[in-house]
Simulated scan of single mutants.
Amino acid sequence: MSQDRASPFALIVMGVSGSGKTSVAEALAAKLGLDFVEGDVLHPAANVEKMLKGIPLTDEDRMPWLDIIGETMKAKLDRGEGILVSCSALKRSYRDRLRAAAGGKLIFVYLHGSKELLTARMGARKGHFMPLSLLESQLATLEVPTGEPGVVTVDIGDTIEGIVGAALHDLSALGVA
């Protein structure tokens, strides 16, 4: 299943840390024939340093990062290519900023899970700069995208294959998959 190159689009797999953004995004990009960009690698060094120290990011910290993601998506779309990015996109204002950067050709897959499941996943992973202690601040910041245009919500209580399958099913209703 690959993207119709006549109408490129951008897709963001979003959610709090521990929701499986990277794993789901990689698998979804492969199924849709899209290039994948790990949003975390686009964070300015100062943001990574703050997170390593367990300091939550502010809106001011996130804006340059969101702009880099927006510029990355816009560049691909301007070349007539689609793209899939992983990005927490916690607030509606962030998502609106990203929508504007993509010229409205942006769809979100929101990965939703219980606090208990997210805590267990974050506690089990190794080598990630985002400590478990910041999950609370992400959950407090999260504005769930219910009712926003171009958003599909997928529960993360399944295997990666099951989550990707559910996302593809819901994306097909938007004419994407």
Results as ranks from 00 to 15, higher is better:
58 T>Y: 06
58 T>L: 06
58 T>G: 07
59 D>R: 01
60 E>Y: 01
60 E>G: 10
61 D>E: 09
62 R>W: 08
64 P>D: 12
65 W>Y: 07
66 L>H: 07
66 L>K: 11
67 D>A: 10
67 D>N: 14
67 D>V: 05
69 I>A: 04
69 I>S: 03
70 G>K: 02
71 E>W: 04
72 T>Y: 01
72 T>L: 01
74 K>S: 00
75 A>G: 03
76 K>V: 00
78 D>P: 00
78 D>T: 00
84 L>Y: 02
84 L>Q: 04
88 S>V: 09
88 S>N: 11
88 S>E: 10
89 A>C: 05
90 L>T: 05
91 K>W: 09
91 K>N: 13
92 R>E: 15
92 R>V: 14
92 R>D: 14
93 S>V: 13
94 Y>S: 11
95 R>G: 11
97 R>Y: 06
97 R>H: 15
102 A>T: 04
105 K>H: 04
105 K>G: 00
106 L>F: 10
108 F>P: 03
108 F>A: 12
109 V>Q: 10
112 H>I: 01
114 S>L: 07
114 S>K: 09
115 K>I: 02
116 E>S: 14
117 L>Y: 02
117 L>P: 07
117 L>E: 12
117 L>G: 05
117 L>N: 07
118 L>E: 06
119 T>V: 07
119 T>N: 13
121 R>G: 11
127 G>M: 05
127 G>S: 11
127 G>R: 08
130 M>C: 09
131 P>E: 08
132 L>K: 13
136 E>C: 05
136 E>Q: 15
137 S>Y: 08
137 S>H: 06
137 S>A: 15
140 A>H: 06
144 V>L: 07
145 P>L: 04
145 P>E: 10
146 T>K: 14
147 G>H: 08
147 G>T: 08
149 P>C: 02
150 G>D: 14
150 G>Q: 14
151 V>L: 05
151 V>I: 14
151 V>E: 07
154 V>R: 03
154 V>Q: 05
156 I>W: 03
157 G>Q: 13
157 G>N: 15
159 T>Q: 09
